[in-house]
Amino acid sequence: MTTQESEAPVTGQPVGGTLRGVGVSAWFGARKVLEGVDIDMRAGVVTALIGPSGCGKSTFLRILNRMHELVPIATLGGSVLLDGDDIYGTALPITEVRRRIGMVFQKPNPFPAMTIGDNVMAGLRLTGRKTANREQLIEESLRRAGLWNEVRNRLGAPAGGLSGGQQQRLCIARSLAVRPDVLLMDEPCSALDPTSTRRIEETILELKDQLTIVIVTHNMQQAQRVSEHCAFFLAAEDEPGRVVEQGETEHIFGSPEDPRTADYVNGRFG
C-alpha cells in the first residue's frame, strides 16, 4: 500500500520552502514565553521541536505561520524568513503566508458541515481559487495523505464519521490541497492510538521529499523516527523558553552536548 501511494504525482511540485526563525521571542501580555530562538528549517527536511510542556514549542510553531497573533494579547519579536522574505513584512500578505505554510493541529479538526471531498477542497474555496479538475485534486491530496484507499467510496459522506486517525489524515490532505511549501504539525499524533500514529508517521516520511515539515512532538521515539533535524526547547522556572541545543537528530539523541538534553532525551525528566 505504501509503495502504491508513493506513486502520487509529484512531478512539478516544489520541494518545499526554507523557513528560518531569526531571534524569535514571544509574549502573552507581559509574560515572556520565548526568547531568542534561531532555527533553520531547510527545504525537504523534517525538523522536530521537542521539549517538556510549557517550554514554548507550540508558540514558536504558531509564530511560523502567523497563528500566534490570533490571541489578542500576543506579541512577538525577531523575524521569520520564508525563502528569504520576512513573513511579518509587507511583501507577503498574511493569507499568502498561511497558504504557503500549512498547519495540522493537535486535535483533528475537519469541518463538520462539509463532506470528506468538500473538506479536501475547503482550502481552495476558502482562498477563492478555482480548480479545473476537482476529482483529480481530491484524489491526489488524499493519496499524498495516505487516506485515499479508505475513503475513495465515500467522498460524499460527512467528515465527522471518520475515525480520529482518519480525520487527522484528512486534515493533512486538506492542508496539502492548497500546495503549501511548508507543513507545520503541532503534536499531530497526541490524540491518536498507536496504529493511527504509525500511519501518520508513514505519511510524514512519504511527504518529506515534497515539502518542508516542522513537527512538534512529545514522543521521543517519534522524533527519532521521522526527523533529521531536531531542536530541544527548555524553559527554566519563571523564565522564557529557549533552544538549549539543536542539530542532527542522531546527534541530539546519540551524543548530546548539553547535560539537560541528555537527561531529557533519555527520559530522566520532563
Binding site: L70, R98, F111
Partner: peptide, 16 residues
C-alpha cells in the same frame, strides 16, 4: 479550532 483551521489554510477572515 475550526476557525483556526480555516485561517491556517490561507483564508481571509470573512471567507472563513
Amino acid at each position: 479550532s475550526l476557525r483556526e483551521a480555516a485561517l491556517a489554510l490561507g483564508s481571509p477572515y470573512w471567507r472563513s
